[in-house]
Simulated assay, not measured.
Amino acid sequence: MALLEVRGLKKNFTGKNETLHAVKGIDFTIEEGECLGLVGESGCGKSTTANMTARLLKESEGDIFFLGKRINGGKRLCAAGKEMQMVFQNPADSFNPHYSVLECVMQGARYYKLYSKSELKERAMEWIKYVGLKESYLEKKIGELSGGECQRTAIARALICNPALIICDEATSALDVSVQAQVVELIRKLKEEKKVSFLFITHDLALTSSVCDRIAVMYSGRIVEMGETKAILQHPMHPYTQLLLSCVLPAVGDDEYRVPECSSFRGAGDGCDFYEFCPKICTQCKDRVPDLQEREGRMTACFQRGDPDE
């Protein structure tokens, strides 16, 4: 049984004149000790997916199973609990800037009443040290920290709750490259030593090679390709994944394509969302949405084989 299983997850935002289909029915799983990278450009629905999974946003349709239990479906939006924690892109916004690092790390565990007062402080100090912050940081105010230090504090606050899953929503995008590498190394350490699972939300495909076991590529509210990280980075099948990779890896051949922006506002539609931009369209693409099907050891939503040299 998977640690996390998402089935048919959808989210619609309705305004006065139009409906935004932000997430259009996606499925994925995460196993114990695994890191799944949810990759795509801004507007593809990955952060909306993260917020629904963490129970910060109510879904329109779909099921979310965590630790063998369905955690959604009620009339009220309820938190997933201490076993699922979230680290945000701008962690400073989730802290009181006047609180010390020690106070901030103790917050979550204090809410769940996990430890006695003396044990809580001891555990907080252990996790602060584990994420790479020195003892001198204990009484520093959050407002005095750098971006990387603040992100480490956010991870320590999540870890003190002993979570089975941590959702990182663009947790490294606001950091410079050297600090990114440090945070990624910390995530790898947590996977190996503590068997913590991760849902790693990012727009940076290259970054996933350092930390993710598998990748799910999103475009316009749908997962278009999913499989082992190495296989997708070395041999992308879906045309959108190929174009996305061409922006970060050396180009092969003479053809150059612009990666189109996601366009969820056009509605659910009858055909493939990538139809207008795809260099490999066929007659079926305009009228039908391709299902996510297994092909050569991965899942791909495309009517074509999707080989890079076709």
Rank of each mutant, 00 (worst) to 15 (best):
G74S: 09
T14W: 06
G143F: 05
L138C: 11
A301G: 09
T208D: 11
E126T: 06
K230T: 10
D270P: 00
T229Q: 03
V39M: 08
C161W: 02
T48S: 11
L199C: 10
N51I: 00
F200K: 04
V259S: 09
K194T: 06
L133G: 03
V131Y: 02
P97H: 11
V217H: 08
S116C: 00
A164C: 12
R295A: 15
G108A: 15
E103D: 13
V179E: 06
K16Y: 10
K129S: 14
F88P: 04
G227Q: 03
S47L: 08
K140Y: 11
K134Q: 13
R76G: 09
E185R: 06
T49Q: 01
Q180H: 05
L36N: 04
H21N: 14
Y130L: 15
M237Q: 10
C44G: 03
L145M: 03
C302K: 02
A206P: 02
K10Q: 14
L56N: 06
L205N: 07
K58Y: 01
R110F: 00
E276K: 15
L233K: 03
F274T: 06
L3N: 04
A54Q: 07
S116I: 02
A109Q: 01
C278G: 08
I160H: 02
L20S: 09
E119D: 13
K82Y: 07
A251Q: 13
I128E: 02
R152V: 12
D169N: 12
K11F: 09
S246Y: 01
D93E: 15
L20R: 04
K10A: 13
R188T: 08
D309F: 14
R222D: 13
E31G: 12
P308D: 13
K113N: 14
